[in-house]
Design a binder for these strands. Structure first.
Lengths: 135, 135
DNA sequence: CGAGTGTAAATATAGCATATACACAGTATG
DNA sequence: CATACTGTGTATATGCTATATTTACACTCG
């Protein structure tokens, strides 16, 4: 009966209300999919139009997201063919996320110091959050 | 000899190149000064014009920054009088920074997980950054 | 009233997002 | 084999919103 079966979205949903620009949300979502192995190297990504329709955004928004992912060498594009996950996309993606982790940790620790917290308090908070994340 | 002595700036320098809007940089700078005790409750803050001149930004940028600080009840303003650090400004500021610390830690840990790191790796990275910060 | 303060309105500028039209690659078909 | 077709990515012109500037106004105290 037509196009009711939505198939599992190849990318997570995004929202204008969420923090950060739409194209960045798409970038983050795809980086996560690649990093966690749900999008393997060589796999074709959804076309601009399909992804734009699924996420209810415009073409150029998807284009901008893919452009940034290509700049990071996580994907590559071929005119008239499509967009694909690059061979070392998983390693690239994980490396970027690792650097981002360190940057965020630095920020968090600095903010904690400025709040008057000491090393132990900060580590305890981190441990608590790690446990909470497991539930 | 006039106004050559710049006096120690009551707020840290800002830059259009730095990440985030100018008014946010001012907000963060003042929150830090208050949080770390260099701006005590009751202390008058620089006037809109003075601060705007020192930081080389426009009046409304300072106004917006002060407005956000007043919303957080860290400072209060009096028409025709000036702007001052509120009585519980230090506690307010530290509480906000503490919440921000937790939010940043959550983000960092999630990003680390997506990069394939485990709990121990994350905690070790945090400990390493804590030591680096001490040098 | 004068010199200080904060307040408000009208006006650029930049990033983000949209819609529309264009160019390239593979494939079906007469 | 030439051609049209349907898919892909590409490029241009347009609108919107947050950020920041300029300029003029209103309040407080001496």
């Amino acid at each position: 009966m037509g196009k009711d079966a939505k198939k599992t979205l190849l990318v997570p949903p995004i929202s204008k209300a969420a923090p950060g620009p739409l194209y960045q949300q798409i970038v983050d979502g795809i980086k996560r999919e690649v990093s966690e192995g749900r999008l393997e190297p060589g796999t074709p990504l959804p076309s601009f139009r399909l992804l734009a329709e699924q996420l209810m955004v415009s073409l150029i928004t998807v284009k901008r997201a893919y452009a940034e992912l290509e700049r990071d060498e996580i994907i590559f594009r071929k005119q008239g063919l499509g967009t694909f996950v690059s061979q070392d996309g998983v390693a690239r993606s994980r490396q970027i996320k690792r650097e981002q982790t360190e940057a965020l940790l630095r920020e968090a620790l600095r903010e904690g110091y400025e709040a008057g917290m000491d090393d132990k308090e900060l580590l305890d908070m981190a441990k608590r959050l790690l446990k909470e994340g497991k539930e």
